[in-house]
């Protein structure tokens, strides 16, 4: 069976303002199976967001191949959903209009789009806030709106870029559980980027560790914890700590490298 998402020997270089090339990813190999929840962890600046941009088709690779659903990525795919790291809901649209944006762009008429949007707003727990504008919502509620905006398109491939990193711990745990619930109904293939190893293990079937920039795969780990999971409790299972220890041994070196570099830049 072909992988749902596959990156083969992918290298990505950016042109820096000074005119030199900066290598963000080098010879990266990654495969996500159909219906798999794959977490990608690595220190800040290692190329996690870049990896998602390549899979989504927002950026082309400099070298190598990116395949989604078995076909090379040419442009932004219709089956891809992307929850961005930064706030990406449209500030000038109400929650209802924001969530209905995807269907509207895809040619579905207003009434039907609104009806679906109401349904998704309810599913992410925002019922009653349809008429609110993003600036009237808390950070957690904006993330819920972003989630509904993405999931309403029923993406087969779901990309998430540190979606919960700006939230407080309680809200975060709540939303992680809700995400698992929503995902189990869709069985989309997920690439979930985070710098938080605990979050990665709690959510994913597999954890991929990326090296400090230029990013390449350092290790891949299976997480054989039973589903459905409760994110708040799973951390106390002995199996969880064992996997955490194993991955952390790998990740620690990369975080140290990244930390030493940032210290050098500062001093």
């Amino acid at each position: 069976m072909a992988a749902a998402i596959e990156l083969r020997h992918v290298t990505k270089r950016f042109l820096t303002p000074s005119g030199t090339a900066y290598t963000a990813l080098r010879d990266l190999d990654l495969a996500v199976q159909d219906g798999e929840f794959c977490a990608v962890v690595g220190p800040t600046g290692c190329g996690k967001s870049t990896t998602l941009a390549l899979i989504s088709g927002l950026e082309p690779p400099s070298e190598g191949e990116v395949l989604v659903g078995g076909a090379p990525v040419q442009r932004v795919g219709r089956d891809v959903g992307y929850v961005f790291q930064a706030d990406a809901v449209f500030p000038w649209k109400s929650v209802l209009d924001n969530v209905a944006t995807g269907p509207r762009f895809r040619g579905i008429e207003r009434r039907e789009a609104d009806e679906r949007a109401r349904d998704w707003i309810r599913r992410v727990g925002l019922a009653g806030f349809e008429r609110y504008y993003p600036h009237q919502l808390s950070g957690g509620m904006r993330k819920r709106a972003a989630l509904a905006q993405t999931l309403i398109n029923e993406p087969r491939f779901l990309l998430m870029d540190e979606p919960f990193s700006a939230l407080d711990v309680q809200t975060r745990t709540l939303m992680e559980n809700e995400l698992l619930q929503l995902w189990s109904a869709t069985r989309a293939s997920v690439v979930f980027v985070t710098h938080d190893l605990e979050e990665a293990i709690a959510l994913a079937d597999r954890v991929v560790v990326i090296t400090a920039g230029p990013g390449t795969v350092k290790g891949v780990y299976r997480v054989d914890l039973p589903r459905p999971r409760n994110v708040a409790e799973i951390r106390f299972q002995p199996e969880f700590s064992r996997i955490y220890q194993e991955i952390w041994n790998d990740l620690r070196d990369e975080v140290l490298v990244s930390y030493e570099r940032s210290k050098r830049v500062v001093s």
């Binding site: 927002l58 219709r78 959903g81 961005f84 809901v89 944006t101 762009f105």
Partner: peptide, 16 residues
């Protein structure tokens, strides 16, 4: 730029 990227992902045409 994030809003533009988001709109593209959601399926916006150039006009939209």
């Amino acid at each position: 730029r994030v809003l533009i990227a988001n709109a593209r992902i959601l399926g916006a045409s150039e006009r939209q």
